[in-house]
Design a protein around this nucleic acid. Structure first.
Lengths: 143, 143
DNA sequence: TTCCTTATCTTGACTCGTTCCAGAAAATGA
DNA sequence: TCATTTTCTGGAACGAGTCAAGATAAGGAA
């Protein structure tokens, strides 16, 4: 369970200034995993009603670059963010509503990280997205 | 090697009307793998100078829905299309310039297709994206 | 504490890929 | 060929995200 003090340390550790918007964004991302930017703006404004959307966009970009949050952007959907970082987990995405759930990799640690032929690319990450229907949409589809 | 006649059959087989824009789009996607929409519009207009961008967008969407072309949309980049469908291959994407190369799966057929925990989702596809730098951008980065 | 420097935030306009709309045109089946 | 239905044209509109300039506040030094 992270507290405001922890968030301060995280920011300090990343050589970032500790600002109210950033603390609020960290808190919002932790409280609402897989939330899109608009939802995060809403959550942040419960604490700081006057933050500009730009401040949230900037904070998210900065925090993502610092590795404190992770940006997820499934094809055809808007960007979403999560605070679970550094454990190389993957995601299940609903084709219908875009909802996201975490999925640990089937094969264990860093599974499909090696392409059979890298075409001369310097590969630093393998991203796996499982596409399907979430329980809710799956039910509606059948009815 | 596909010809116009083949394209006609493909469209017919998918119960789609055979129109000049669609034939031109199929040809353009085959000739320019991993091209974005704007490039495809350009290529199509070499054959049909007067097609509207909307016709190309519509055609691409229809053809994608019919499974005749595949849409690729790496996070942060515009949509791209390819005509290689149905073989479950993956992609290597350059973080810097967005260029894409094909990558057959390391582990063979349908590799990471099984999540350890599907969270109740009905999964129908596993998408793997390898992120890195293409040979060109990798060189510039070092200089 | 106070001041200075610099990063960050506010405000508001703007970009760009993509979609929506209504009418015109063209493809298919009878 | 005609009628029906789908598709295409042209242009407006949408929305997530970005850009820019000035105001503000965080962090370090005195």
């Amino acid at each position: 369970m992270s507290t405001a003090a922890d968030f301060r340390q995280m920011l300090r550790g990343a050589a970032l200034r500790v600002t109210r918007p950033r603390l609020a964004v960290l808190e919002a991302v932790r409280a609402h995993p897989h939330a899109d930017t608009e939802s995060i703006i809403g959550a942040v404004r419960e604490d700081l009603p006057k933050v500009s959307h730009q401040a949230v966009y900037d904070s998210l970009r900065t925090l993502t670059a610092a590795g404190l949050v992770r940006k997820i952007q499934p094809a055809g959907f808007v960007a979403r963010y999560e605070s679970r970082v550094g454990d190389n987990h993957h995601h299940v995405v609903c084709r219908s509503c875009g909802s996201i759930a975490d999925a640990d990799c089937a094969v264990g640690e860093a599974p499909c990280l090696t392409a059979s032929d890298d075409r001369g690319f310097t590969i630093d990450e393998a991203e796996v997205v499982y596409w399907g229907l979430c329980p809710g949409c799956s039910t509606n589809e059948n009815s």
